[in-house]
């Protein structure tokens, strides 16, 4: 047991500012999920209306349409009102949400002038964007 103020060396002290930042980030995350869910609901209802009567077979893997596999293609198709693309757009928003969280955490480390964690956080953001935008692994 260690009393506060007499912590072992190297202990990062959680101050109120840390908690405030985290709280704001947590809230933003929830808004991100909510926004993504709303887009998915709208697209999903349209999808059921447009394609709901068609028999679907997902036993075999055919892969998604090429247009719905990239962020740019999804945005273009969603603009023209394609319901499948609107769902996909919501899912892209959802996949981008954790990346936004890490990017905001980067902001917190910049405020704290914590160079080591600025670097670490940048690596994580770069890896996430690499997966989402270029899609290679």
């Amino acid at each position: 047991m260690t009393a506060p103020g007499k912590q072992p060396p190297g202990t990062a002290v959680r101050d109120r500012r840390d908690e405030q930042i985290e709280l704001v980030i947590g809230r933003l995350l929830q808004w991100g999920v909510l926004a993504a869910a709303i887009v998915v609901v709208i697209g999903g209802l349209l999808l059921l209306a447009q394609y709901g009567h068609l028999p679907a077979n997902f036993r075999q893997f055919n892969g998604e349409d090429a247009a719905l596999r990239s962020v740019g293609g999804i945005i273009r198709a969603a603009r023209s009102g394609d319901s499948r693309a609107i769902v996909q757009l919501g899912l892209v928003l959802l996949i981008a949400t954790p990346a936004a969280r890490v990017a905001l955490t980067l902001g917190a480390f910049i405020i704290q002038r914590d160079r080591l964690y600025m670097l670490t956080t940048t690596i994580v953001v770069a890896l996430l964007l690499y997966g989402l935008i270029w899609g290679r692994a």
Binding site: V40, G44, Q88, G90, R101, Y130, L132, I133
Partner: peptide
């Protein structure tokens, strides 16, 4: 964060099918 890394890649490979992902999500 972990799931988002591979989900991004799988989106490009066509693993994410809107008709299935929307009710599941």
């Amino acid at each position: 964060v972990t799931a988002a890394a591979s989900a991004g890649v799988y989106l490009h490979r066509g693993y994410i099918e809107p008709a299935l992902a929307f009710p599941v999500m």
